[in-house]
Write a protein that binds this DNA or RNA. Structure first.
Lengths: 249, 249
DNA sequence: CGGCAACCTGTGATTTCCCTGAGAAACGCA
DNA sequence: TGCGTTTCTCAGGGAAATCACAGGTTGCCG
């Protein structure tokens, strides 16, 4: 299954299948709150979503829904994640799978699985992370030359989603994991005011219960690394949120 | 559900469904004064409104009314806002929801809500804010390429609701939150006299108890930023109110 | 032309929101 | 285990926004 991308007026790119229909994703998890959260977020990406609560349901849905990617929790009530994966593969040999695992799961079992081009995230995850990895999987499973989209550009600032490299005006910048995800979210929505609540919901894990001012703190970190001594690209809209835009404008 | 826009003779744009019928919005709040206030304001937008006072009523009404958007108070007598949301989602998976929350409500109760494209406003709100956010939700839930109407234009003055950017004759202008909302209200009603009472009811929170001359004050601020040294666009109709119109005409 | 009502705007008090330093806790890696 | 890095809390400082107040200005009417 190959994919293409289109760009909306705002510069936000969306994944589409070759025939122009939306990408299809199957979400499998036994916790209803998780499937709902993921379904909501992925639908907002413009994708078509189905969900299942156990292995049997997953296989059944997969057969008739024919998804382009699957999000699969390793812990299911009726069968082991590996069993589901095996049977899924018999039905849909080429569909990439994004595994959801508990943080303390045996890492090497997962590591073996991802060798086939699949990927995984640990619970609790951030939606940015899930969406980014899914986009990566879908892109790579399709036309190979689509890799170039993995680079986001705003003004003289670039961010590579594959290599995690960030540079401004050609100069490389080192970011921590959280800084990177925050910047990616901003750059995927350039010239658009994003509220602190939106940023928190998207960049931080769904179980984060801390102070909302972490967002301010990380914006401050980003500014120090990206805007330091240069024309600022990250702007505060007091009472509304933050936005990023090219320096010149 | 996709939507389209038309422009009325007054230059006022309205949201419509593809078949030309008005947008439908369900308002859910246990305080009658709030549902009445909102119903009145939203009907004035040309939308079709139903309201409910509790979760049970909301679900019942939603089933037969099939709204395009829902305004939902988090505090309901019979069930928790999140419970209502869950059941609502099972009935109408794609309907966007605008939550009403108390200002001092624990932040984590709204965590995750904006991730799916939903949004929220805190009580006490201004009607401009509710209407603007609802329009945004409805626009985005429909055809994705409808984003471009987020820009209001009157003469050489433009206001972008997404980026919160305002410019006159190409020159960027910085506005505070209140100035922005006031200008948006004026620009959404060009060439139309708006009384101070109307402006106060619309742009300021419904519990505002201050002096009515804040409107004069903020009009004065706006003039300083928008009309300064140029042909004025904001005009006073003594004894009646204010209006905005293109400079030339 | 005088007087009044409506409107404009300078000043400053108060509040709200945002930024950032310091340090504690958690994490990751050798 | 130990050490450097990263994440996050807390709190103080500071800037911006909001608004009340009051004196000045404008336009209207008799």
């Amino acid at each position: 299954m190959s994919t293409m991308t289109t760009t909306s007026p705002q510069g936000r790119t969306e994944l589409l299948r070759p025939d122009g229909s939306p990408v299809r994703v199957l979400v499998v998890d036994d916790e209803l709150s998780i499937t709902e959260l993921l379904s909501m977020a992925l639908r907002y990406e413009g994708w078509q979503i189905r969900s299942a609560g156990d292995g049997t349901g997953a296989l059944q849905t997969a057969r008739e829904f024919r998804p382009d990617a699957v999000v699969l929790d390793m812990m299911l009530p009726d069968m082991d994640g590996l069993t589901v994966l095996g049977r899924l593969r018999r039905e849909l040999p080429d569909v990439p799978v994004l595994f959801l695992t508990a943080k303390d799961a045996v890492e090497d079992r997962i590591a073996g699985l991802t060798a086939g081009g699949d990927d995984y995230v640990t619970k609790p995850f951030s939606l940015e992370e899930v969406v980014a990895r899914l986009r990566g999987l879908i892109r790579r499973s399709g036309a190979a030359d689509r890799r170039s989209d993995s680079v986001l550009v705003v003004g003289d600032l670039t961010l590579d989603e594959d290599s995690h490299e960030v540079s401004r005006a050609g100069e490389g910048i080192h970011l921590t994991a959280t800084e990177f995800e925050l910047l990616r979210f901003l750059m995927r929505n350039p010239r658009r005011v994003l509220s602190k609540a939106q940023i928190l919901d998207r960049v931080w894990s769904y179980d984060f219960g801390g102070q909302a001012n972490v967002v301010e703190l990380y914006i401050s970190y980003l500014r120090r690394k990206i805007d330091a001594g240069r024309e600022p690209m990250i702007h505060t809209r007091r009472g509304a949120g933050y936005l990023i835009k090219p320096a010149v404008s």
